[in-house]
């Protein structure tokens, strides 16, 4: 903080001891314990055996969510009570910024995987490249192209003629999600999704401009529109998945194309959902709680950064998953 010296020092608020962290831990650990149980029952378990994994998981999630709720509430109350110095607020800003950075890196892993299978592993499986790895011998009837509409396994005659032991079976889709496979451009959901999400980024920004001028009405209106657009996006995404599963035969089992498609769009969709919820909460705070002023609206700002981040990720998704 510029010009700060010991004399004009604003006290940095260090909270008293708090049980929030321990409650959050309890919730989190119970959730992952339950989730592991659920998945293991699914994959390794005996279907007739009754387990309580679901109850543990749901209880843990509930507990976790409740803790987070009261955590944020506490933080907001402290702010309203005027405990937070400018310096402390900057800590929150930094926290949010680096949190978003870590999310970027999470997506980076999946984009990296996509890049790798499309540009390296795929062609190798198709028999390209020499000196390093070559596969003419292993998958002679497999030709690589993207979107991968036939897995190497299928090219070789399916799961009954396993080249590699214990592999499970991978059945490809018959229609891909790319533009070329769409019935008509207005049937192509990704396009609509892009429009919706890009618009929502703009509306979110308008809301921001509103609150900066202290115009609460404008803020509420445009924030409301943003949240609505977010909901539409999530709805369209669900439709798209429905279509993929039921009409295109594209599933998580559809080889690497399905894997990368669902993981990238799925995690993105999940983030949209999170961002939308965050914005919704800000809307409720503004409308019902009568919070936020031209200078005090960090909760909204943080959520809006998140929203823009989710938007940027979508642009890359649109480019690399749907178009290229």
């Amino acid at each position: 903080m510029t010009g700060q010296t010991s004399t004009e020092y604003e006290k940095y608020y260090v909270p008293e001891k708090s049980r929030l962290a321990l409650c959050a831990t309890t919730g989190l650990i119970l959730s992952i314990y339950g989730a592991s149980g659920i998945m293991n029952d699914m994959t390794f378990g005996d279907p007739d055996e009754a387990t309580n994994s679901w109850s543990i998981f749901l209880f843990g999630m509930f507990f976790f969510a409740a803790t987070l709720f009261s955590w944020f509430r506490t933080a907001i109350k402290e702010n309203i009570a005027g405990l937070n110095s400018a310096q402390l607020k900057k800590s929150y800003v930094l926290g949010m910024f680096w949190f978003i950075f870590s999310e970027v890196m999470f997506f980076f892993a999946f984009f990296g995987a996509l890049f790798y299978v499309r540009n390296l592993a795929g062609p190798w499986l198709g028999g390209e490249g020499d000196g390093g790895r070559m596969n003419g011998l292993l998958w002679p009837s497999f030709d690589f192209s993207w979107p991968m509409m036939q897995t190497p396994q299928e090219a070789m005659g399916g799961a009954t003629t396993q080249l590699i032991a214990n592999n499970g079976s991978f059945t490809s889709a018959h229609t891909s999600m790319s533009f070329a496979d769409a019935h008509a451009w207005w049937h192509w959901l990704p396009l609509w999704n892009t429009l919706v999400l890009l618009t929502s980024s703009v509306t979110c920004h308008i809301a921001h401009l509103g609150i900066l001028k202290g115009d609460k009405k404008k803020f509420n209106l445009w924030l409301g529109i943003t949240v609505a657009l977010g909901m539409i996006f999530v709805y369209l995404q669900i439709m798209e998945y429905y279509e993929a599963y039921n009409e295109f035969g594209l599933t998580l089992n559809s080889g690497i194309y399905g894997s990368t498609f669902f993981m990238l769009t799925g995690f993105h969709g999940f983030h949209v959902f999170m961002g939308m919820t965050m914005l919704l909460i800000q809307l409720l705070r503004s409308v019902i709680g009568k919070q936020f002023t031209a200078t005090e609206h960090f909760g909204f700002e943080a959520s809006s950064w998140y929203w823009h981040f989710v938007d940027v990720v979508w642009v890359f998704l649109f480019l690399f998953v749907y178009i290229l």
Binding site: G132, L137, L138, L163
Partner: peptide, 8 residues
């Protein structure tokens, strides 16, 4: 020795 790939 990578399952599914051949190294030379």
């Amino acid at each position: 020795a990578i399952p599914g790939f051949i190294n030379e």
